[in-house]
Amino acid sequence: MTKKENFLKGFFKENPIFVFLLGMCPALAVTTTFETSLGMGLLVVFVLTSSNIVVSLVKKWIPHDVRTPSYIVIIATFVTVVKMLTEAYAIDLYDALGVFLPLIVVNCLILGRAEAFASKNKVIDSAIDGLGMGLGFTLGLVFIGILREFLATGGIMFGVYLPIGEAPITLVSLDMIINLFNANFHISDYGIKVFTLAPGAFIALGIILAVFQFKKSRVDRKLAIAKMEMIAEKKRIALEKKKLAALKLAKAGGK
């Protein structure tokens, strides 16, 4: 596997959320808005990359029997660092994530990558793997977050939770899109409020996963059809060869 493939595999082919269904708890809980999803994703990127680096650095000195405890300690240390940094520099994000910030410790993705990849590979590869997988996780979270926030409030806000130092700005809103066609048009109080609540989270993620499964089944069917066609073609060629051989034999017999 080249370094580029190693980096890119986490985005679509092995996406942690949509393909492996790892880290479903944060994927449902913190994706109320675009910004909290982005913040959570970036924190996971940091923890995953640094824990992968440290695990692959110390893998030679860890006895095989106490592997899992050591990984848990390493991950918990980085989560504590991240928790303190977030509390110091992004208190709004810290409040919004709540209990799910310390719960990064038990995210299956991080322990899974440490056991499956970082404990067997070189430092640089592990770092790239952590970065790619973490960014893939972020991509998944942000995708769900954008969908939920747009459906719930009719727009995407930026600057409410992340410390960008300016007043919150609206990135996109339904009014903006409609005003492209029809000037001075306002929809006040647009929004399907259920998508900010718990049921909306389940239903939104269910719809997204169904779309992924639909695409995957389409691709699988295409591959299956292509394979069947190939087999039929081979059979035809073999049959023709047989016929030709039989014809030759008949000619030889006729002489």
Binding site: L205, G206, I207, L209, A210, V211, Q213, F214
Partner: peptide
């Protein structure tokens, strides 16, 4: 339906 089988329908 095939697209909803498994996890998606469980989530809904």
């Amino acid at each position: 339906p095939a697209a909803w089988k498994g996890v998606p329908i469980s989530l809904v």
